[in-house]
């Protein structure tokens, strides 16, 4: 397993490394029956190598549209998004997405789903790699199950494994744990953090859950809606692992709550 850069994830990181992702003056306007609707306006930010960035905002603020642009599913109306200086034109395995919805292929087993995007390896290498990632997400006994035979939390693990196996430059996560129960959600967050500690992926994580953002992120972008733009940026200077009951954790939650309540211009 190659690690891309020896950054210690944590509060000390002040991100001197060059940005992996650069988003500048990005706007997205949709044509509707009632005329143009601006979903994103002048969104501007960077993501550094190995950084865990959360984008927090209410429903309808354009979070998912932003992610769709970064993933290459949508083209921006203005401005640009660069992945390591190259404009993002279409979707590809260098920017993998974990969706909120279940997007596993129902006719493939867990193992086959994980191996789906792997190319250019011999059968044996592919099998070993798949088993390795199956183990990483703790699903070794379930490799031959079909998606309909496993629980929602396990499906998320498979979704995670099938993108991690491709070693993407950036991991895009669209409220991936939104549909899970609270306990499973926390387990998935812990799993994600421990994988991130291991591999130092660069992650853009979309969420509407304040707790989740504080628990995970190095930095949080708070979005407002109508039109969707970045209202505030908060760097989370908490050591890991983070304890939700600590007062400093709660302070961040309060600050974010305020920021969401009264978006600053």
């Amino acid at each position: 397993m190659t690690t891309q850069l020896k950054l210690i994830p944590g509060h000390k990181k002040e991100l001197q490394a060059p940005p992996v992702l650069q988003v500048s003056k990005l706007s997205k306007v949709f044509k509707t029956g009632d005329g143009p609707m601006t979903v994103l306006q002048d969104v501007h930010f960077q993501v550094a190598e190995g950084e865990f960035l959360c984008v927090l905002g209410p429903s309808g603020c354009g979070k998912t549209t932003l992610l769709n642009v970064l993933a290459g599913f949508e083209k921006p109306s203005a401005g640009k998004a660069l992945l390591e200086e190259t404009p993002i034109m279409e979707s590809g395995p260098d920017r993998c997405v974990v969706f909120q919805e279940d997007t596993l292929f129902p006719w493939l087993t867990v193992k086959e789903n994980i191996a789906f995007g792997v190319k250019g390896l011999s059968k044996k290498e592919k099998r070993e790699k798949t088993n390795h990632f199956l183990d990483l997400v703790g699903l070794t006994p379930f490799g031959d199950y079909l998606p309909r035979e496993i629980s929602g939390g396990m499906k998320k693990r498979v979704s995670l494994a099938r993108v991690l196996i491709l070693q993407p430059r950036i991991l895009l996560m669209d409220e991936p744990f939104g549909a899970l129960d609270a306990q499973t959600r926390e387990e998935m967050q812990d799993l994600l953090l421990s994988l991130w500690n291991q591999f130092h992926h660069t992650i853009v994580f979309i969420t509407h859950d304040i707790d989740e953002a504080v628990a995970l992120a190095d930095r949080i972008l708070v979005m407002q809606k109508d039109p969707g733009m970045i209202a505030k940026e908060i760097r989370v200077r908490l050591s890991r692992p983070r304890e939700r009951t600590e007062s400093s954790f709660q302070d961040y939650c309060k600050a974010l709550y305020q920021a969401l309540k009264k978006p600053q211009p």
Binding site: A71, G72, F73, E90, S91, G92, P93, R95, C96, V97, F99, E101, T103, F105, P106, W107, F116, G117, K119, R162, V163, L166
Partner: peptide, 29 residues
């Protein structure tokens, strides 16, 4: 066949024409 499956396929490196055989036909089977 859910459009999300095609998005997932594209993100995992499936080209447009291949998607017919690797996603569309199995999904519609």
């Amino acid at each position: 066949v859910s459009p999300l499956l095609f998005q997932a396929g594209a993100m995992l490196g499936v080209r447009r024409m291949n998607a017919v055989f690797s996603i569309l036909l199995p999904g519609a089977m």
